[in-house]
């Protein structure tokens, strides 16, 4: 009996030893790699904050309105973008390299999946950033135009324009990543269809009111407000 217990105990110890000698070096190596990459990422971020100016990118960020999306005051700078980007990239690379130290199938699957997904992820991110930029550009243009033309609810119009453009960019990005493409496409079609239907109802109801006004007050021209011509402005 004691001999049997000793054998079991020995077996457990052997398995533990075996597992420890198999996993621990990998774990240790992974920890060292992740820690090293973390330190490199910190150093790279600090260095980029000091040396990278990116004035041209700053100008683009400000003009495009992206800076104001990231920060309400518009003080978001390219330095921050590049430094934080480099920090995240080094950290992710270090983490994936650390995973590969385990030399297991699961780790390989994760790495492979991530590496394959990475280009699509980058393209999708760029599409969304582009969409946000375009939504700001066209939204502001529409806002100012609507105000100058005296249209009702200019801010609402601009908001609708922005939402539509961002939504289109999300649909395209989802399609690019093969992420529930049918769901997004269906949602997009429903949204556009709903918008067209709403516009048609609004137009129809306005037109009927106009017809009513015309037939009730036929012959009565609305009082024209005297305005100076454009030439008089110059």
């Amino acid at each position: 009996m004691p001999n049997g217990f000793g054998q079991i105990f020995q077996g457990v110890l052997d398995r533990l030893h075996n597992q420890a000698t198999t996993v621990l070096p990998g774990l240790l190596a992974a920890a060292i790699i992740v820690l090293t990459s973390f330190l490199i990422a910190l150093a790279a971020r600090a260095l980029l904050y000091r040396i990278f100016k990116g004035l041209a990118i700053d100008r683009f960020l400000r003009r495009s309105g992206v800076a104001y999306i990231m920060d309400k005051q518009g003080s978001f700078r390219a330095t921050r973008l590049v430094a934080e980007g480099a920090y995240a990239a080094i950290l992710i690379t270090g983490f994936l390299t650390g995973l590969s130290a385990f030399n297991s199938q699961l780790a390989d699957h994760i790495i492979q999946g991530f590496v394959l997904l990475m280009p699509k992820l980058v393209v999708a991110a760029l599409i969304i950033v582009g969409g946000v930029w375009a939504s700001q550009y066209f939204g502001r243009g529409l806002l100012v135009w609507a105000v100058n033309e005296g249209l009702p609810a200019p801010r609402r119009l601009a908001a609708i324009c922005r939402v539509m453009i961002v939504f289109i960019s999300i649909v395209v990005a989802a399609d690019q990543m093969d992420f529930a493409p049918r769901v997004f496409l269906a949602a997009f079609i429903i949204l556009i269809g709903g918008f067209v239907l709403l516009s048609a109802i609004a137009l129809g109801s306005t037109a009927s009111a106009e017809f009513k006004r015309f037939f009730q007050g036929a012959g009565h021209e609305p009082e024209r407000i005297a305005e100076k011509s454009l030439w008089n402005q110059l």
């Binding site: 502001r140 806002l143 609507a146 005296g150 801010r155 407000i225 005297a226 305005e227 100076k228 008089n232």
Partner: peptide, 23 residues
């Protein structure tokens, strides 16, 4: 004579102030 409509002009400014704040 150059016709002007001050009330409408003030209205345009008020709308502008309300809607163009972000710019």
């Amino acid at each position: 004579p150059v016709p002007v409509n001050v009330a409408r002009m003030i209205g345009v400014f008020e709308r502008g102030f309300r809607d163009l704040e972000e710019i």
